[in-house]
Design a protein around this nucleic acid. Structure first.
Lengths: 242, 242
DNA sequence: AGTGATCGCATCATCCTACAACTTGGAGGT
DNA sequence: ACCTCCAAGTTGTAGGATGATGCGATCACT
């Protein structure tokens, strides 16, 4: 037993539809983020990993390359790959597994923090061009009567355009990212549990936001956005505190 | 000439220290995010990319694998890799190039939104264990008299622990990520322009935050955090509006 | 001629082998 | 004790081979 028992029980692969490198990367990533590999320690060599996972070294390389790109490990030629401290990460990634129950509530809370402030800033700074694009998204939503793919898309655009109206590219990126993740996880639950999510309700809330933005009223925009998010969260079974 | 002139001038590589796959991925990523490749269109085949960049197909594969992991392209076996709409991205990545001037101000604004709210939540929810860890970071900072590596590290821990005290894992991740990116970009400017950034100033601001958290006073915690961030931004030459 | 099944082709996914570049550590000589 | 050189181990890169997959063209049958 030369390996110091890293604890690699090969983890029977649950035959997911993902590609091999993605699976390997996901497993390693989970081990690292769970602290099962302690920062500073060295990963097994690529050859050993290949043997452990039962894949070729090329597949392992793609997986490790992704970990390196995310800043989870530091691969040094001729030495090995070392686990980095978690705060060194270079990319934020949210996998669906983290959104079960409590995770979704937390993500909604983060979303609310960003979007309420985004609404406030958009009301204060949004140009006519911005407002027109927000209005266009609203109109697209108005056309549909059921809450399905088309209107959900328009909803995302609506929120993204508000974030863009802040003039802050990072706010736009982060809000868009979070909304997209929430949408992705909702789609599954929705098919099973078709909550009464009438367009009228949503439209009323959206109209209030838009009116506040048009009126350049930051306080009202923030309040309207908060009310909308509380409602949206409730509609997917999440209670948004505060 | 079968290739419909994607416009691939091979882009002479500026001999950076990065690895080959990283360089290829960065080039492709830039093309995509700049819109030079229009969503929906197909990338050249891996063989052609390998020939264009003058590298092996393996290198291209690692690069494309990373793009796919980030949600920038969708690679379908036997067909090709297609560029996705920008909002479909699965990871947030901030490269240093985006932080020149205006970028840094925008990132600070985003940071302020998150951290002021985080301070408020931490004051309301933080447990004794959380507060102790925040205090420990503060003590570590107090030991140093110059603002250098050690105290900067402690500063990061201080902010991260406050985010952790919200009990929201996503807030912790996002705040930590943003602080780390700002730190990385500051380090360079700092070496050239050693702004008067005395520890006492920083400590005073931090003490105010800590006192507010101890007192479980959300409003004061938020105000103290805002004051600190305005000061921190000013010290690196960024004016934080509002 | 129209329709359906079949085949071939382009492409990605995976695997394999080999070599280059780099680091480490020890053998051996000075 | 110190320096030099070399051998082993590891990651980085190259190139090819093979299987899997999706698409279009061809071909046979009606």
């Amino acid at each position: 037993m030369s390996a110091p028992s890293h604890g690699w029980p090969t983890e029977e692969t649950p035959l997911s539809a993902e590609l091999l490198p993605d699976r390997v990367a996901a497993m390693l990533s989970r081990r690292i983020s769970e602290g099962a590999i302690a920062p500073g320690t060295r990963l097994p060599t690529e050859q050993k990993l290949a043997a452990l996972f039962g894949v070729s070294r090329n597949v392992v390389r793609e997986a490790v390359a992704r970990l390196r790109a995310d800043g989870l490990v530091d691969a040094r030629q001729g030495v090995g790959s070392f686990v980095l401290a978690p705060e060194r990460r270079l990319a934020i990634r949210i996998d669906a597994a983290a959104l079960g129950g409590e995770g979704m509530a937390q993500l909604f809370e983060l979303r609310a923090i960003l979007e309420t402030e985004a609404a406030r800033l958009a009301a204060a700074r949004g140009t006519e061009a911005h407002l027109e694009r927000i209005g266009a998204a609203l109109e697209r939503m108005r056309g549909e009567e059921r809450w399905e793919e088309g209107s959900i898309d328009a909803d995302l655009v609506f929120h993204r355009e508000i974030a863009a109206a802040t003039g802050n590219a990072f706010i736009e990126t982060f809000v868009s990212f979070i909304c997209e993740r929430i949408r992705g996880s909702i789609r599954h639950a929705r098919a099973i549990n078709p909550i009464a999510d009438l367009v009228e309700v949503n439209l009323g809330e959206h109209d209030r936001i838009y009116a506040a933005l048009r009126a350049a009223a930051p306080d009202e925009a923030e309040a309207a956005m908060r009310a909308h998010l509380v409602g949206a969260a409730a509609r997917v079974g999440v209670i948004l505190k505060r």
